[in-house]
Design a binder for these strands. Structure first.
Lengths: 283, 283
DNA sequence: GCATCTAAGAAAATATTTTTTCAGTCAAGA
DNA sequence: TCTTGACTGAAAAAATATTTTCTTAGATGC
């Protein structure tokens, strides 16, 4: 599938029949959108019959109209990404490595604001700040640090925040402690961990509301989740970045801290005092 | 068709059910392409049933899945033509809390590319990838997670990476192990921890090269550091964000992984194998 | 002018997709 | 604890899309 549809058409251009040429013109005139409608509509627009299209598609070496459309769609998706997004948005194309990387991350982050509605954001903040519920959090191997950022800051704003250790052995203990209505925050990006799905399943069975942060391919945990935060991350590539995920998490904890400012301040102060006392007693 | 599909989704966001929200996330995470596949495929990807999609489409005020796809296609076609409009639509200036927050973070991140020269970046990458040296890392209370991101990924690309525990008591042990020429990565943002400065001082005395990541007010650790990465962070405010710091760290580890790709791949594979074996023996 | 062949569309057959119906499940409230 | 109501997905039904078959029209060579 190294060939684009357009290339395929050009390759066979010389051996096309009259109506096939008509079709090719119509397709190339509004490429690739013309090919993304139903075969009948395309037939009408190109003023040929549907069977001619089927034959045409076979002629350019594709298995059928569906495959043809799938290919066009993939091209479209790819095309959008590389030339436009990577160069245009990322700023200096000839910049250095660092500014290049940061350019990409910046673009992705801007996207993440789009991918999550304010409504969902508000709902999740409300859920995680509800003092009636206990909050449990954890993440996958690489994303655990991100999840930890959430529990760390959340702990400053409210009580009953628990971060599950990575060690699977300890999970049952936490599971038993979870009560219906509690919330479990899970960050899981590719490559997904089956451990997490099992955990989610059991927690979900106990009536725990699961908030999942994942990438666009959706972790299997999504099956059990009440809320899915899908952040746009080029997860799985060497060019990974978790910055959009971090930004969303920071937005959540900041919002919660703001809304419960009095309480947060009190908690931080109390916490500081304990820390200072401990240190003094060390001396 | 004055409304885009995305707008429609946002309009009804508050009255969506659990699986509809899941669907909305999946759609927005890969908008609009996610919606251009068959209803069944979308159902599979979003982990909901096809009927739920039909109901969802009706809920956002469209006549059916076909109409939904037609609209998405039209948007795509339009959007391609005028990038200006796309930008206009996307970045609501009067957006909500989340987009506001992300907007700030994005701006800060763009700045951070400016604040660090490519030269310094390259120097640090070289230092941290040098197999002759051992690498030690840690961070302050809040920034430890960020530092951890560095040691976690660095560990995949090379040997001899150690993350110091938060517990001060254990530090002397690590200090004694450090040798002249080793590198110590410290992340320290306001409010600074005096612990860290003492650690830096002792390490520095042993000939350890210290790389400091801090904010523009410069942690006291800077005194002993060979390299200071000052990332623009509104540290100390309620509106904190570590995203620029994370971006820089990710850029560093990505660069190092790329430069030592063969080795990194080998290490990751070996690592995976051990993990899988462990899991198997659990059974 | 006739036979023959290719190409194209109509219609039928097939495959696929979309929608509706319906029964089970789960959470919230009495 | 029980009831109620809303949500959900499995399965069936309906609609639609795609492909195949078959017939006709037109071109070409004899």
């Amino acid at each position: 599938m190294a060939m684009t549809v357009k290339e395929r058409v050009e390759n066979v251009a010389s051996e096309l029949t009259a109506s096939e040429r008509k079709l090719a013109s119509a397709l190339l005139a509004d490429y690739p959108y013309a090919g993304l409608v139903s075969i009948q509509e395309l037939a009408k627009r190109a003023e040929v019959s549907a069977p001619s299209i089927t034959r045409f598609v076979a002629k350019i070496g594709l298995g059928g109209y569906q495959e043809f459309q799938r290919d066009l769609l993939l091209e479209l998706k790819e095309g959008e990404k590389s030339p436009v997004e990577l160069q245009d948005r990322g700023g200096r194309p000839a910049g250095g490595y660092l500014s290049d990387f940061i350019g990409r991350a910046t673009a992705l982050m801007a996207d993440s604001a789009q991918a999550i509605t304010e409504d969902q954001f508000a709902r999740i903040c409300k859920l995680l700040s509800d003092p009636q519920r206990s909050i449990y959090a954890l993440g996958g191997r690489a994303s655990n640090t991100i999840a930890f950022q959430l529990s760390f800051h959340l702990r400053q704003a409210r009580k009953d925040v628990f971060h599950l250790p990575s060690d699977v052995e300890t999970w049952p203990e936490y599971l038993l402690r979870m009560r219906s209505g509690d919330a479990l925050f899970i960050a899981d990006f590719r490559r997904y961990q089956t451990d997490l799905e099992r955990l989610a399943e059991k927690a979900s069975a106990r009536g725990v509301r699961i908030v999942l942060m994942t990438d666009k391919w959706l972790s299997p945990v999504a099956r059990h989740a009440a809320e899915v935060l899908a952040v746009p991350i080029e997860s799985g590539t060497l060019w990974d970045t978790y910055t959009p995920a971090l930004a969303v998490i920071e937005a959540i904890v900041t919002r919660i801290a703001e809304d419960n400012w009095e309480q947060t301040r009190t908690r931080i102060r109390a916490w500081d005092e304990v820390r200072i006392k401990e240190r003094d007693s060390d001396k």
